[in-house]
């Protein structure tokens, strides 16, 4: 019996009930959410019961306007035997960005979580070596968060509107 998105969803809801929710399948990949306290349980269940034993990717996304759920940690998992991929997310408050580490289960999570910490400040609880990996150790902010725009804030000749995201940086703000 081959594993399909429906079966994975059914097994997860059977086991976790209300703790897994928001099932969607954008572009064919099953995606769901779980509370952040639950991430290791879900990973372990997927690993043991459903054969998702390859951690493809760990990363984070910042949604500054979503109060209380500003940071999303996104896991991509792959079942190499059945050849099916899934994605799940845990959302966390930006003031207490504590999420359990997956390093006990996957060695590959080590650097990926360090990278996520480096750029988004997600504090992976229990990580053996949670230090910055790309940026210098002295850096005191998390550069990929949305409050740090790429363009120089003092430039007046460029309007953010050109790039599709509101015009509130260069023209409306009185910089000089």
């Amino acid at each position: 019996m081959s594993l399909t998105n429906e079966i994975v969803q059914q097994r997860l809801t059977e086991y976790f009930g209300e703790a897994v929710f928001n099932f969607t399948a954008p572009y064919g990949m099953l995606t769901f959410e779980t509370p952040k306290e639950n991430n290791l349980k879900v990973l372990q269940f997927l690993y043991d019961e459903l054969g998702f034993q390859f951690l493809t990717d760990v990363t984070a996304v910042h949604y500054p306007n979503d109060k209380g759920r500003e940071l999303a940690v996104v896991y991509h998992l792959h079942n190499l035997v059945e050849n099916i991929r899934i994605r799940f997310k845990v959302f966390t408050d930006i003031n207490t960005p504590d999420v359990f580490t997956a390093t006990r289960l996957f060695e590959s999570a080590n650097w990926q979580e360090r990278e996520t910490y480096d750029f988004y400040g997600v504090n992976f609880v229990g990580h053996p070596n949670l230090r910055r990996i790309m940026n210098v150790d002295e850096m005191d902010y998390f550069p990929q968060r949305k409050e740090y725009p790429v363009e120089d804030q003092t430039r007046r000749d460029k309007d953010d509107e050109m790039f599709g995201r509101g015009g509130d940086t260069a023209f409306t703000k009185d910089v000089y």
């Binding site: 990717d57 996304v61 910042h62 080590n110």
Partner: peptide, 28 residues
Amino acid sequence: ELGFYLISDGGRTPYRLHFRRPCFIYYQ
């Protein structure tokens, strides 16, 4: 496996783009 994880919020630029770079992961 070189992966591209792209989130679009309907704007003109990606909301988030993440590269899964194979050798970053296996160098560990």
